[in-house]
């Protein structure tokens, strides 16, 4: 049952002004390319961009060794090729736009602070990990630990927006501290695990054990959901005004919002009572 869907999101980027990187050869050897970052491309010539460092497996190489580069001095970046094993694209970026044409590897936009990343395929695990600002828009599926915290860290995503048009894996928004994650498909188990605050919206099926250990924050299930943990208590059925503001913002970004979800009632459960218990799971309950 669809409720939020993408209504023709348009990538407004002039390709003539952009720096285009094409992976020379498909590979299964992991490439660490955190230098594919708009901040580093501004003020650099084509040769300067080609000379930026990257890792091919454990070997230190340059972007020019792995990619053909066209364009210079721009914060608009297009990345093409078989990028499933290319990691850390857009890491720590603060401005501009990166468009990934196809699937992309792990750690996309980790620690990102501003600008936008658009992935026209699927993204690997840890996309938007520790993200602090900006927006990541994934048109396919996302892997596990979307917007999460790296193991051992105290907090994950701390601002910004992640939108996934497909499904997302386990532990979406783990230890999330601030920001918004919207998944139009299903999410696997442990969404919002140990969430500190922030918002996670799921338009498909909300997986099992959602919100386990959450202190504050909001998880919204617009459609189907697995059984909630027994440490969440039912409060009431109401119309949350704040949710209207979020849905209208998503609509302004080009997403189609079902009127029933906008005007409708939601069942509120608070938890997780094993911790602070000030988090909430809102479940759509008809208009």
């Amino acid at each position: 049952m669809g409720c939020i869907s993408c209504a023709g999101f348009v990538i407004a980027m002039s390709e003539t002004d952009a720096v285009t990187l094409r992976l020379k050869e498909p590979t299964t050897i992991p490439i660490e390319a955190d230098s594919i970052c708009p901040d580093l491309f501004v003020g650099r010539s084509q040769a300067g961009i080609e000379s930026l460092p990257a890792f091919y497996g454990r070997r230190k190489v340059t972007l020019g060794d792995l990619f053909t580069v066209e364009g210079e001095n721009s914060d608009q970046v297009i990345v093409e090729g078989a990028l499933r094993y290319v990691k850390k694209i857009g890491q720590r970026m603060t401005r501009g736009r990166v468009v990934v044409r196809g699937d992309v590897g792990l750690h996309l936009g980790a620690y990102m602070r501003g600008g936008e990343i658009v992935v026209e395929g699927n993204a690997g695990d840890w996309a938007g990990a520790h993200m602090q600002g900006g927006r990541i828009w994934i048109r396919g599926n996302a892997g596990h630990l979307l917007g999460a915290a790296y193991r051992g860290e105290k907090r994950g995503m701390n601002g910004g927006v992640i939108i996934v048009e497909g499904n997302a894996g386990r532990e979406v928004g783990a230890l999330m501290r601030r920001g918004l994650i919207v998944v139009l498909g299903d999410v696997d188990e442990f969404a919002g695990v140990r969430m500190i605050t922030g918002s996670i919206f799921v338009s498909g099926r909300l997986g099992a054990r959602a919100g386990a250990g959450m202190k504050r924050g909001t998880i919204v299930a617009f459609a189907d959901h697995a059984e909630l943990l027994p440490t969440f208590r039912y409060d009431c059925r109401f119309q949350p005004t704040f949710l209207r503001c979020y849905l209208l913002q998503l609509h302004a970004w080009g997403m189609s919002i079902d009127d029933d979800r906008l005007e409708g009632f939601y069942r509120r459960y608070h938890g997780d009572l094993t911790t602070l218990g000030k988090g909430e799971i809102l479940i759509y309950d008809q208009r």
């Binding site: 603060t94 401005r95 602070r113 501003g114 600008g115 936008e116 602090q132 600002g133 900006g134 927006r135 701390n158 601002g159 910004g160 927006v161 601030r178 920001g179 918004l180 605050t197 918002s199 504050r216 909001t218 704040f242 503001c245 979020y246 913002q249 000030k278």
Partner: peptide, 18 residues
């Protein structure tokens, strides 16, 4: 029991500044 929500308004904001 009050809670806050930071409504994102654009793509440039950095943490709570936008």
């Amino acid at each position: 029991f009050q809670t806050s929500k930071l409504l994102p308004s654009g793509i440039t904001e950095d943490r709570g500044k936008g």
